[in-house]
Nucleic acid binder design. Structure first.
Lengths: 340, 340
DNA sequence: CACTGTTTTGCAAGCGTATGCAATGAAGGG
DNA sequence: CCCTTCATTGCATACGCTTGCAAAACAGTG
């Protein structure tokens, strides 16, 4: 019943060569004469042989599997990132073992342990904070860790992000140019580098024009929190006339709350700017002005970084930040002097 | 430099027992005295030993990895499914190796081959059609394949879906009750069982009340196609007064097109019903009436099915379809006699 | 043809674990 | 105290492959 798996030995017998010959034919970079290659290929074909990756992993210590730790799959940015990462890695012969983790340090710890058991060649964490202790241990084990869309101040880690500080600054400048003076910020989670950097860039950007944030509330990258923050902001004698929201995911909640709960118009009553430029931001229902994170370049850089460090065996922490453009849509007014 | 991995042998030496003893301590169901267990646990703790899953896989033939083949990550339903599946499997000690595949048979073929190389214990395909030839080969290799949210007529495969026929029927009945008479359908891809079943249920449901579909267009589960279909439907002397859309993902595009391109009101001018009940459907911007696919139960059933077949070793094709409720929201009117 | 340099090839040793088997020891009954 | 029974333990092997090493085949040169 059990269709026994074909091994290299069986192929060897049928081809009339040694088992090592078979192995060499299927090992890129090994030497074999044209004649044996032909014989082995034929026999393998006939038997339907495929090398056993597990056995190969045992020997070489390389699994060609990358562990991906991911947290917020309800934010459209991450499925998208997952898809791109998976495809890019597949292209290079790697595959993705997915772990979901809430953002509690213990859970992440546990997940990373598990990951190491699987002999993954590298780890990518998407918006998940990793204690530097943990990355040290991974590095000691020769396993590169790259943080995608998150950074860790001070720690010696690999990180690929967009230029969040600059992004925040761009938003500030743009909103000032649009004539706004009471600009609030529902920030990304303060425990995340992205959240902090965007907030900082925003504050700096306003300061450069002699302004100050009207109010800042931590939205925790959470829809409900962002909605509540919106209510709190607007329930004031001097509500903001523009809100920069820490990411698109929250911005949608903010827009929903403003329009359907508070009955306000966007951008007439309040202008909204997000961050990420997920596909949903371009849908007409939201049509959200936002800072685009250059997903393709970020993914490419992440994949290159992991693979380079796997190949070189050296892990010299690197960090990259890509600049992303501000995409203007109808959730904001035209800047002064550009009205149509 | 290279922090060598700790092996069971080193633990054995430190604990003063044989390597087999160590193995047995870490193998559930193996026998060892309380004393050795203590000694081994202690030594393992001190050295930071963790059993090597790859070596274990070599011996047992079980990797505790499930391959997940997924296609449409831009439809929110699938990230959600992915997250739930991953969590449910993690809970049972399994992990998920993700493969993305376009829905071309060749690509799927290639992906499944790869998957087998990794010695996965089972395969879950999410909305991906698998040739029965392929499942036969997997079964021959003793690897269960479960299709999630898709079925294959006639073939001997495992499938977990919601009751799509009945769901379509419910929509038809509801829309008739609301007083609609020109009810169109932008159907799910005709090459998918879900698309066909929903369409069939819808047609049957209308027929049961003596009605007929106003018009049916294949939306291919694609936003652009659905938008175009919407334009085509509405550009008529007798446009529909209600549209049942094959899934939420397309329904959002339809709503966007109706409102922002054609300037129509929902549900006053046209009522819209979707299918899936993704989180986005509950957001106030859409507030879409839709048939809920009972994700939790579907995931649970899928996981149970895979694991049962792994454990039993027997692969007796099973198929389950869960009934899902119609969730009424403001994209449709109140049914006759229930107006407030 | 002898000699050297270069491929190609087979042999055999492992990679880290699980497990059948036989040996050991402990426990219990008479 | 002896014999039986059963749980525990160690030994040795196997899982399917890669790879260092040395022998063998080949090619090229004078």
């Amino acid at each position: 019943m059990e269709h026994a798996r074909i091994t290299s030995l069986q192929v060897a017998e049928r081809a009339g060569v040694s088992q090592s010959a078979v192995s060499r034919v299927f090992t890129p970079g090994a030497s074999a004469s044209a004649k044996t290659i032909a014989k082995v290929r034929k026999a393998a074909e006939e038997l339907g042989y495929r090398p056993n990756r597990v056995a190969r992993t045992m020997i070489t210590g390389k699994s060609r599997i990358i562990g991906l730790v991911v947290a917020y799959l309800d934010n459209q940015f991450y499925p998208q990132a997952l898809e791109h990462l998976s495809n890019a890695l597949q292209e290079k012969g790697y595959h993705v073992l997915v772990f979901t983790a809430t953002n509690s340090p213990e859970k992440v710890e546990e997940v990373m342990r598990d990951l190491l058991d699987f002999q993954v060649d590298g780890i990518i964490t998407a918006s998940v904070a990793v204690t530097s202790d943990l990355t040290v241990r991974c590095n000691a084990a020769g396993i590169p860790v790259v943080m995608f869309n998150r950074d860790q101040d001070g720690a010696d880690v690999n990180a690929v992000t967009s230029d969040n500080v600059n992004g925040g600054r761009k938003v500030a400048e743009f909103l000032v140019q649009c004539g706004h003076r009471r600009i609030a910020h529902i920030s990304g989670w303060d425990g995340s580098s992205t959240g902090r950097d965007r907030r900082r860039g925003f504050s700096e950007g306003l300061a450069a024009h002699g302004h100050k944030p009207h109010q800042i509330i931590d939205g925790m990258y959470n829809r409900d929190t962002a909605s509540q923050a919106t209510r709190d902001l607007m329930d004031s004698l001097t509500p903001p006339d523009a809100i920069f929201v820490g990411n698109d995911h929250m911005a949608f909640a903010v827009m929903d709350t403003l329009r359907h709960e508070l009955g306000l118009k966007i951008p007439q009553d309040v202008a909204i700017v997000g961050f990420d430029d997920v596909p949903l931001a371009a849908w007409p229902s939201y049509d959200l002005t936002t800072v685009r994170q250059p997903l393709n370049r970020m993914v490419e850089a992440t994949v290159d970084m992991v693979i380079a460090q796997i190949d070189e065996g050296v892990i010299a922490p690197r960090r990259v930040a890509f600049d992303g453009p501000l995409i203007r849509r109808s959730s904001t007014r035209q800047p002064k002097g550009q009205e149509t």
